[in-house]
């Protein structure tokens, strides 16, 4: 599991993920915050709806897409967590297809 080493939270803020409150360090990315809270699944893949989570953490892979405050397709690794943010798993947007 992901854990902090050599640091503790000094400027705590609170965000919500799927209704659950998480305490994070101000200035952390949403991705890091969720990973440190033990969450691995950030979204469903577009075609087969399998579980996906962050991969590159530098804005290249687009695996960490989550819905933040109602807006979908937000890259969690490129978004700084802000107090009161409500984050949800990004669902696949349509029925399964074979293509």
């Amino acid at each position: 599991m992901f854990k902090r080493v050599m640091t503790e939270i000094r400027n705590p803020i609170h965000i919500e993920f799927e209704g659950q409150t998480i305490t994070v360090e101000k200035g952390e990315t949403v991705a890091a915050a969720l990973m440190l809270a033990g969450h691995g699944k950030f979204r469903e893949s577009s075609v087969t709806r399998e579980d996906r989570g962050p991969f590159c953490l530098m804005g290249v892979c687009f695996e960490c897409l989550v819905e933040i405050d109602g807006t979908p397709n937000r890259q969690a690794c490129m978004t700084l967590a802000e107090d009161g943010m409500k984050i949800r798993v990004q669902k696949a947007a349509f029925e399964e297809t074979t293509r």
């Binding site: 992901f2 080493v5 640091t7 952390e28 990315t29 890091a32 990973m35 440190l36």
Partner: peptide
């Protein structure tokens, strides 16, 4: 960025 690691 976070001083975090994966311990497994």
């Amino acid at each position: 960025a976070q001083g975090a690691i994966n311990d497994d």
